[in-house]
Write a protein that binds this DNA or RNA. Structure first.
Lengths: 234, 234
DNA sequence: CGCGCGTTTGAGTGGTCTCAATGTCCGTGG
DNA sequence: CCACGGACATTGAGACCACTCAAACGCGCG
């Protein structure tokens, strides 16, 4: 459907040898999900755990696509609290802005590789980029949808509903549909759901007591009652 | 900067005679904020108070721009609760979707006029619409930014912070920067902020006792300590 | 083995919700 | 002109859920 630059080569393929065993959040992205590259494709970047890809307020020169690992975008408030806007899994694109500056900071949650695509914002798209605009528009609409869903998640929901919704979303987005490998910490989850770390932990324990999930380890969630979870999060 | 169709005529001008006195939420939009029309401009539509412009799940054939009045987009949950995603003031555009269907319902809050622009989604933008894509991209990025801000507003903030942020946003978006004419009810505000109607009312009363605002009537807010409000909402 | 980090669990507090009653504004009709 | 009704908004009392502060637990690593 959408035109893609034939010169574009997927950096994900060159990554595969370096990662012998891959949990779901490390899966390489499918080639068809790679956006058409601005200019001559994109530049592959490595980002270490907790390292910053770009800062809130920094000049926006590129947008990004996750190859492997996990990226979080967040805002630091004046009272020191952090709010996470989104988690980006392999295949997801992020970093579009309508001004010339980023309005969130982006950090790697774990060992992460991303591809950077240079662009100068919506206003600077010339006629030569005509084929690119519809694809970027589609990505922007996806981003708006994700942000809307996040806002709906945060409004007037109980802790168990929020956690269930988070787990349901993670299942839907990962390859494996039974076991979720959480690359992010409890603090990350709490900052994403607008809860405290203790409440997240308590809620997960309660879900385990209710036999909706199992927690073989802190960062591994086995979903046992997928429909129950989905119903709880609705 | 951005190309606009010369054949496009602003329906807002034809509205002006019909509205002798205009509070801020009834202000007609500035011509430069009108997006380039898809096809041959747009179709002017009247929407009565609480009438539905489109329903959640309905086929998406147009996007819209508010000429006068106020539009809310919302979601009705299975427990009967309503969550409002956004309020759209004159000049704002809404109704973009990345699928073929709307994912929220749109309703007029009061007597409202909108312009409808036909389009068939990002995928259907042909070469003939090349000049349109960057403008739509810009609007989509605005929408994403708005949704992100809303999500940040809803996460881990006290009732007074939420209400202060709502009032601050309303001041920034309306023409008058001292008195806010609220076209929406307390219930609308509560559903937007993830609070109950009682908490919204109590919080407004408290802000009045703290002399940050005055409430000459229920739907009219005079801002007396703008910096204090802004600081509270940060 | 012991340290450190992340996570889990416990006890008590507080902010928002729920349920209920009262108050205010405005249009209608006597 | 005032009485009445209805919708919307405000205020009050009590309950509950998530937060805060604190301690204990489990795991990986030097």
């Amino acid at each position: 459907m959408s035109a893609t630059f034939s010169a574009f080569s997927d950096p994900a393929f060159s990554m595969r040898r370096a990662v012998p065993t891959r949990p779901s959040w490390m899966a390489t992205s499918a080639p068809e999900k790679i956006p058409a590259g601005a200019a001559s494709g994109g530049q592959l970047l490595h980002v270490a755990p907790d390292a910053e890809l770009y800062a809130d307020g920094a000049e926006s020169v590129s947008f990004y696509k996750v190859v492997s690992g996990l990226v979080r975008t967040c805002k630091f408030r004046s009272d020191g609290r952090r709010q996470i806007d989104a988690f980006y899994l392999p295949g997801d694109s992020f970093g579009f802005e309508d001004g010339g500056r980023h309005r969130l900071s982006a950090e790697a949650v774990c060992e992460t590789y991303v591809v950077a695509y240079r662009w100068r914002g919506a206003e600077a798209l010339s006629a030569g980029d005509a084929a690119l605009a519809p694809q970027l528009l589609s990505l922007a609409l996806q981003g708006m949808r994700r942000a809307q869903d996040h806002a709906l998640l945060l409004g007037r929901r109980s802790a168990s509903q929020k956690v269930a919704a988070f787990l349901t979303d993670m299942i839907d987005r990962s390859v494996n549909d039974e076991v979720i490998e959480l690359a992010m910490s409890r603090q990350d989850i709490a900052d994403y759901l607008g809860l405290t770390i203790e409440t997240v932990s308590r809620t997960l324990s309660q879900l385990e007591r209710d036999e909706m999930i199992a927690l073989p380890s802190a960062r591994r969630v086995r979903v046992q009652d997928r429909l129950g979870l989905r119903h709880l999060s609705s």
